[in-house]
Amino acid sequence: MKQLKLNQSSLSIFIITVFTIVNCNSQAYTKQELQDSLAKTPYFSIYKDNYFITGVPTNKKIESTSANAKYQISFKQILTRSKLPLDTYIYLTYTQKAFWNIYEGSFPFKDINFNPSIAIGKVIYDKQERLKGLATLSLEHESNGRDSIASRSWNRISFEYTTNILKNTVATFKVWAPFAYKDGNPDLLEYTGLGEINVTHTLIPDKIMFDLNLRKGLNFEGKGSVQSRVYYNPFNNNISNQYLMLEWFVGQGEGLLNYQQSNSMIRLGYVIKTDEFRWFRGK
C-alpha cells in the first residue's frame, strides 16, 4: 500500500515554532495554591481521554471491514502524596485502546492495546514560585496481548514535560528510550519515532477545544502520524468533562497489530475528557 506522506516541512516549522514560543501565562498558580489543589485531588482519576468513537477511512473504499469503532479506557492511581525527595510523587496508570469492527457480522475486535506504567512526577516552578511545568519520568509497557506472529510489544522509559506555550494553549513534549521491542516488531521505531508533541488549545472554556498530536518515525520518509481532534460540549454545564469529539488520524502506528499500515480515519463520538492538566489553564 502506498505510504501516506506527512508534510515534513510544515511539521519541522511547527516544531521549531513551538519550542521558541515563550510562556505567557500571567495567571499561573502559585506554589501554595497548587499544593492546596493537589491535596484535594482524588487518588483515583482519569488519566487520558476515555472515549468511544466510530468512523470511516478516507484513503480507501468504505465497507464493513474498513469502517470501525475505537474506544479507550484510561485511569490513574496516585500511590503517595507524602514528601518524597525533590517534592516528587509516584503514581500508576493504565490505558487500554481497542479497535472494534462493529460493522462486520460477528463484531470482531481487530486489535486491543494494553499500556500500563509506573511514573514519578514533579511540579516545576519559576523564580516567583508560580507554576511553570510538570515533569514526569515513567516506565511503560505496551502490547497487544497476542502470541506467535501476531504478537506486538515494546517497553520504554519516557520523559514528559507539560507547560503553557501561549494563553489557553498547553503543550506536552514526550521522548522515550525503548528497549525489549525487537521481537515481533523490530522496525517499530521507523513508525513511532523517539517522541511526540501534543498541543491542546482552548477556544471557549468548557465548550470548544482543539488537540494536535505529532509523531515522526526514524526515517527520511514520511512515516509517522498526525492526529487532530476537535472537542465540543453541547451541554449547558460540563461537570463531568463530557464532550463530542471529532478525530482525524493520518499515518501509521495507530494500533500495534498493523503498525506499518497507512491509515486515514475520521471518527466521531463521545468522550469524557481528561482534566489532568487543568492547572495550566490559569485561575
Rank of each mutant, 00 (worst) to 15 (best):
S153V: 06
Q3R: 13
E63M: 11
S148H: 10
K83M: 12
L244K: 01
K283P: 08
L268N: 07
Y231S: 03
E276R: 13
K60Y: 06
M1G: 12
L38H: 03
P205E: 05
L256C: 06
L11C: 01
D211Q: 12
E160W: 02
V56T: 14
Y259T: 00
Y161H: 09
S12K: 15
G121L: 02
A119S: 12
E221G: 15
S37C: 08
P108H: 02
N241D: 14
N219S: 14
E63G: 14
Q242F: 11
L92H: 08
V170I: 15
Y243R: 02
V123R: 05
T93P: 01
N241K: 04
L189S: 10
C24R: 13
I73T: 06
K70S: 11
K31L: 10
G195K: 04
E160Y: 03
N233Q: 03
D126I: 08
I157T: 12
I208L: 14
F179R: 05
D147Y: 06
G269I: 02
T163Q: 11
V250W: 04
T200V: 11
T80R: 02
L166P: 01
L257K: 13
R278V: 10
R130A: 03
K70E: 15
L134T: 07
Y103T: 04
L214I: 12
F235S: 04
T80L: 02
N23Q: 09
T162M: 00
L92N: 11
P108D: 04
F249L: 00
L38S: 03
A119R: 00
S153R: 01
L137D: 00
F235V: 05
L257Y: 10
P108I: 03
T274H: 07
Y161V: 01
S45V: 02
G145L: 02
L79Q: 01
K216C: 01
V199F: 00
K48F: 01
G193F: 02
T80D: 07
T163E: 09
I149Q: 09
I124G: 03
S64R: 15
L256Q: 04
L6T: 00
N59R: 07
W248Y: 14
R229A: 08
E190Y: 10
K61P: 07
R281Q: 12
S64G: 07
W100M: 05
A28C: 08
Q252S: 13
I13R: 14
Y51C: 06
L244W: 06
C24I: 12
L246D: 01
S37I: 08
G282E: 06
Q35A: 14
F159S: 07
Y231K: 03
K223F: 03
L244A: 06
